[in-house]
């Protein structure tokens, strides 16, 4: 068996014959969602067929105009807040008919943190057999870059022109609190870990949640080539914790952060969105440390499962 190159970031001959996101899509260069789908393609290799439900977000503009589609899998374009509900129905039909199809709800942060929150929460509570993947670019990218509840402290958006003065929601904490079979954050800068999680999430049953910090060069006002580096800085600094929670209980921290102040400074400096508010590493350090104290406490408590 050919080993996946770069932990699955590259296409190999053992890959799914058809990419989930094919060439001809309309994504911006450096889009984290494109990379996520590239990895998901590899994770789905030699697995059961997939069906996607995508609400209003960049990913439903990406395939282009009817009747064409750059998606290499069937997609239902749902209304903005409905991905988890539509995916529930689709997964139920597959289940009733003894089909092994894996249904993936693939949504941005707006469709997950904001307008879809109640629906996602309800599908998690019912433990629907779906993989819910949130690619989080921390902004309403498709509508021109307005703030969402995933927008981080200090980031300028078209509706927070001087920088947001509220912390972003802890989505993984919220989803893990539903005691779903699997909830994990995914770092695109750690492809082996990312691929393992996607593979595990696709292969298991019940409600699974993956959170991907998805660089958006357009909205973050950053170099397209630096997306992965930005994610790496977010992980190194402790700003983006990479961990997984099984059944709402057993918790594993997958990447130890360096808690590097320098990485945090670089993370801010490399993105235009943080320049207006002049947010500094020291301003958010306390909140990062506090959330890590909580995480470590929980991880220690929940080691045994």
């Amino acid at each position: 068996m050919a080993k996946p190159l770069l932990g699955g970031a590259m296409k190999t001959e053992s890959d799914r014959p058809e990419q989930i996101l094919r060439p001809g899509n309309t994504n911006c260069g450096g889009c984290g969602m494109s990379i996520t789908l590239r990895m998901l393609t590899h994770a789905a290799a030699r697995q059961h067929p997939v069906q996607l439900v995508i609400p209003a977000c960049c990913a439903i503009v990406a395939p282009g105009q009817y009747p064409f589609s750059a998606y290499g899998a069937p997609v239902v374009a749902s209304t903005f807040g409905s991905a988890a509900a539509v995916a529930s129905g689709l997964a139920q039909v597959a289940h009733m008919n003894g089909e092994k199809t894996r249904v993936i709800a693939f949504a941005g942060d707006g469709g997950t943190y904001d307008i879809g929150m109640a629906t996602v929460s309800a599908a998690a509570e019912r433990n629907e057999d779906i993989l819910y993947l949130c690619y989080d670019n921390e902004i309403y990218g498709n509508t021109g870059g307005q703030r969402s509840s995933a927008t981080p402290f200090g980031a300028s958006t078209s509706t927070t022109p001087y920088g947001k003065d509220i912390l972003k929601k802890d989505i993984l904490g919220i989803m893990a609190a539903h005691r779903v079979p699997y909830a994990a954050s995914v770092s695109l800068a750690h492809p082996e870990d990312a691929l393992r999680k996607m593979h595990y999430a696709l292969g298991s049953t019940g409600f699974r949640f993956l959170h991907v910090l998805s660089p958006c060069p357009t909205g973050w006002k950053a170099e397209a080539a630096e997306g992965i580096e930005l994610v790496r800085l977010a992980v190194r600094s402790g700003l983006y914790p990479v961990y997984e929670v099984f059944g709402g209980h057993r918790m594993v921290i997958n990447v130890e952060p360096e808690m590097s102040l320098e990485a945090l400074e670089q993370y801010f400096a490399k993105q235009g969105r943080f320049q207006k508010s002049k947010v500094r590493a020291e301003d958010v350090r306390a909140s990062i440390e506090r959330s890590w104290r909580d995480l470590r406490g929980l991880a220690a408590l929940r080691k045994e499962g």
Partner: peptide, 20 residues
């Protein structure tokens, strides 16, 4: 499926129906 809102009630119907 006992859902959390009418919006999702129709959402689940859509998913089921689109699956046949």
């Amino acid at each position: 499926t006992r859902v959390e809102s009418e919006h999702s009630a129709m959402g689940v119907c859509i998913g089921l129906a689109v699956g046949g």
